[in-house]
């Protein structure tokens, strides 16, 4: 065991898979010599060589498009898109090929690639460096979408993602990159995709979240506890496939649902969870399913960003409103 930040845990997962599987290739902008702008791939080029870990020219479409070719040729590329806000030049490759190749070729060519990308706000960055794009990917048949909230989960989930024969969009909450430290095994271990985690048990309300908002919910739970509200916190971990079973079981017990995420709310992951829970345990609900998300506006620049991101007080407010409904 070692104490790791999420950056270190992701790096550890990459190192484990680079060592275990010579089909794994790691590349992207500034990934090699520099070790990535967030230092996630630090020293990996030194350890595994420049034919396994390397810099690409500046072109997201080409990064993802060449990964398609590598998958066809039997490799397992793990590419980095420096910020999720710049994934869109590669969106065409993702939607028109990555997500469909297995289906198109009737299982002949699968796409065992991972697209890693830091996402989300709260780090006072330039425009396009704070958005949450998970809904676009979750909406696309053929892709899996994974978002860890702790260093331990980041490592185990990334290893599973690399081992997955389906393409995985692995979104890393950059606000948590160095914010939490945790004991993480240096060995290889995996956490299955598609399984949510009950972080804290409680009877009064189920709060479902993922990524950086999990920690904000935990802060809100301090206020809730003082007000005598027992929250059951579920960290989704995998956005798609969605673990409906865990959600249904919890809401059956609590009768209340609040989804907290930092993306805009319309046609979002939060909407989907509310729909799924309504379908599965409609008669157990004692209040309308609720969501607390970013607004349906562009996420503001740093000066106004903290108004947009759900803060612990506002999460508590939403919890209280649901419980007192």
């Amino acid at each position: 065991m070692a104490v790791m930040t999420m950056v270190q845990a992701i790096q550890s997962a990459l190192a484990v898979k680079l060592a275990e599987d010579d089909r794994v290739m790691v590349y992207g902008e500034d990934v090699g010599v520099e070790g990535g702008v967030f230092r996630v791939t630090q020293d990996l080029q030194k350890r595994f060589g420049a034919d396994r870990v390397f810099d690409s020219p500046l072109a997201e479409s080409a990064i993802i498009g060449t990964a398609v070719g590598m998958c066809i040729a039997g490799l397992r590329p793990v590419v980095e898109i420096q910020f999720s806000g710049f994934i869109f030049p590669g969106f065409n490759q993702l939607l028109t090929h990555v997500a469909r190749y297995n289906n198109r070729t009737q299982g002949r060519y699968s796409m065992p690639m991972v697209v890693r990308t830091p996402y989300g706000g709260g780090v006072r960055a330039l425009e396009h460096h704070s958005d949450s794009e998970e809904a676009y990917f979750a909406h696309t048949p053929g892709l899996k979408v994974v978002i860890p909230a702790t260093p331990h989960d980041a490592k185990g989930l990334l290893i599973s993602a690399i081992e997955s024969d389906d393409p995985v969009i692995f979104m890393e909450p950059k606000r948590l990159y160095r914010a939490i430290k945790q004991e993480v095994s240096e060995e290889s271990f995996s956490i299955p995709l598609g399984k949510a985690k009950v972080v804290t048990e409680g009877d009064h309300i189920t709060v479902v979240s993922y990524g950086a908002m999990v920690r904000e919910v935990q802060k809100a739970m301090v206020f809730a506890a003082k007000a005598g509200i027992k929250v059951e916190l579920i960290d989704l971990r995998t956005i798609y496939p969605l673990d409906r079973e865990t959600l249904a079981r919890s809401v059956k017990k609590t009768g209340h649902l609040l989804v907290v995420s930092e993306s805009p709310s319309f046609a979002s992951v939060a909407s989907e969870i509310m729909a799924a829970v309504s379908e599965d345990v409609f008669l157990s609900l004692e209040a309308p399913p609720a969501r607390l998300t970013g607004f349906d506006t562009v996420i503001p620049l740093p000066h106004g960003e903290m108004l947009y991101l759900p803060e612990p007080e506002r999460i508590f407010y939403a919890i209280k409103n649901s419980v007192e409904y």
Binding site: F266, T297, H303, G304
Partner: peptide, 19 residues
């Protein structure tokens, strides 16, 4: 400081009711 209305004002030329 940024005010709440600043976040919403320019999202659309004509603000949707939902906003």
């Amino acid at each position: 400081a940024t005010r709440p209305e600043d976040i919403f004002r320019h999202a659309y030329r004509e603000m949707p009711v939902d906003l």
